[in-house]
Structure formats: C-alpha cells, structure tokens
C-alpha cells in the first residue's frame, strides 16, 4: 500500500506543479457558472433557469470535456515512463507492476476527482448563495450526483487510457489512440446505435437495444444526469432508449463503476505481460 501511495502522491504533486489540477478546476467552475446563468440565453432569458436544466446542460458539455481531459491526463502513464527511461529503474524497486499501475490510477483519479469537486463545488456554492429562492437541498443532491458521476466517467477514461499506455511503445501512438477512443465513445458510438435503430426499422430486438447504451460510459453518464432530472419526453436521439432500460439508477451507477474497474483490470493484465 505504501508503494501505491508513493506513486500516487508523485502524480498528485505533478498535477499541482504543472497546474493541471487548478486549470481543470478553473475550467469547470467557469463553465458551470456560465451555464447556470447564461444557459437559457438562447430562449431569450438571462439568469438561473432551474437546477435540472443546469445539470442537464453541464452533463451535455461534460461528455465532451471529461473524457478528453481524462485521456490527456493518463495516456502517457506507462509509455511516458518507458520513453523517459524511468520504467526500467522503477521495476527494479520493490514495486510490482500492479502497484505501479494502481498508484498511477490513484494519483490521476484523485487529481480528476479533486478538480471536479473544487470546480463544480465552487459553482454549486455560488448558485446557492447568489440565486434567490433556489432549493438548496435539491441543488446539493443534484450537484453531488453530478460531481460523483463526472468523476466516475473520468475514471473510466483514465482506465481506458491505461489500456493504450501499457500496450504501445511510443507516446505519439498512445496520444493518437487516446483520441480515437474519445472519438469513438463520444461521437461515433451513438451514431452507430442510431443508425442501427433506423436501419432496422424496429426489426432489431427491441429488448436488446437499450442495453447497448451500457456499452458506452458517456451514455450511462448522460442517462444518470439527464434522465433522472428531466421529463423523459424531452430526451432526444438514442437516449430515448434509456427510458426502456429495465434497470434503475443503481444499475446505472454500477455500470459506470464497472466501466473503470474492467478496463483497469485489463490494463493490469496487459501490463503484466509487457516486456521491459
């Protein structure tokens, strides 16, 4: 455990040193405050609309931003150590490959969790203090749910980045593959699903289709943050399938947790087989 924490603490202090943590937190806070006050500007209204609307807007933005930030934070975790010449040395220390990987995950995961908590937390506090007659209780619950699910979404993409990082031998390749992962889950996956839906004209097993949403962590995240707050009649695109899912929020939470546990375990297995 000590070795894991030693690795994690270095990652954390690295993100403080290079100001990643503070920069991400700042971006989150700015976006959250901006969306809270100006999110409804399109409908000709400036000012706080409602908590569900704010969270839904934040989540829509989050699915683009969070995976990208997580992938950028983590793609060079192992391949960067190898290219920097430190992996070999680390592996001669009383440190297993699993401890190195989990230490990295703890460090990167905490960085992202802290940035999310600080960034969106500050925004939440600002809303609670500045908006008149906002229901603080409901806002707190909604914000906490949003912060936790955002963190979990980030963790799943950190773990996915590790799968790439333990597999390739050059940083630019890792960066390219990380971008491909982002592209696939954030942009392509839903289009594919939508395409399947349209092309099959209802022929496709209607009971199976909603489950396919669970194959994409960003869809789970949107279901958690949008479906639970909004009237499901407002849902558009593939998310409307979510209302047919026979699992409740706890199932979605579990799915999101599995989305970082399984890739992390996979990265570990791949890392154990890697030649150093």
């Amino acid at each position: 455990m000590n070795s894991i924490w030693t690795i994690a603490r270095k990652e954390l202090s690295d993100s403080l040193r290079n100001r990643w943590l503070i920069a991400i937190a700042l971006v989150f806070a700015t976006l959250a405050v901006g969306i809270a006050w100006f999110g409804a500007a399109a409908s000709g209204q400036v000012g706080y609309a409602s908590t569900p609307a704010t969270i839904a807007s934040l989540a829509s933005l989050g699915i683009f931003l969070i995976p990208l930030i997580a992938l950028l934070l983590a793609y060079d975790a192992i391949v960067g150590e190898e290219e920097g010449g430190t992996l070999l040395l680390l592996m001669t220390y009383p440190l297993s490959r699993g401890q190195l990987l989990f230490g990295k995950f703890l460090g990167h995961g905490l960085t992202l969790a802290l940035a999310t908590l600080i960034g969106f937390g500050v925004a939440g506090v600002a809303i609670a203090l500045l908006v008149e007659d906002v229901a603080v209780g409901a806002l707190t619950v909604a914000m906490l749910r949003f912060i936790i699910s955002t963190t979990l979404l980030g963790w799943s993409f950190i773990a996915l980045a590790y799968v790439v990082s333990v597999r390739v031998s050059e940083k630019p390749i890792a960066a390219g593959l990380a971008l491909a992962i982002w592209f696939f889950f954030v942009l392509v996956f839903d289009l594919l699903l939508l395409g399947t839906l349209v092309a099959s004209q209802g022929e496709f097993n209607p009971e199976l289709l909603p489950w396919l949403l669970l194959l994409n962590p960003t869809d789970i995240y949107r279901l958690l943050n949008i479906v639970t707050f909004s009237d499901s009649t407002q849902l558009s695109g593939v998310l409307s399938l979510g209302s047919d899912l026979p699992i409740g929020p706890s199932g979605l939470w579990l799915a999101l947790i599995l989305w970082f546990v399984i890739p992390l375990a996979g990265a570990w297995a791949l890392f154990r087989g890697r030649r150093i």
Partner: peptide, 24 residues
C-alpha cells in the same frame, strides 16, 4: 542503469526522496 534518466521537472532531492520512499 546505463544512461540513467529521471523526471526532468523534479529536483535531485525530490527524485531521491521519491525513490527512497519506494525502497523503504
């Protein structure tokens, strides 16, 4: 190792402390 490399952004003291922790 031959051609030993370290984290360039850390100081010598920080690096040695990191490795000392790893080695107990």
């Amino acid at each position: 190792p031959e051609n030993v490399m370290f984290y360039p952004q850390l100081t010598g003291r920080e690096i040695l402390a990191h490795f000392a922790r790893l080695k107990g």
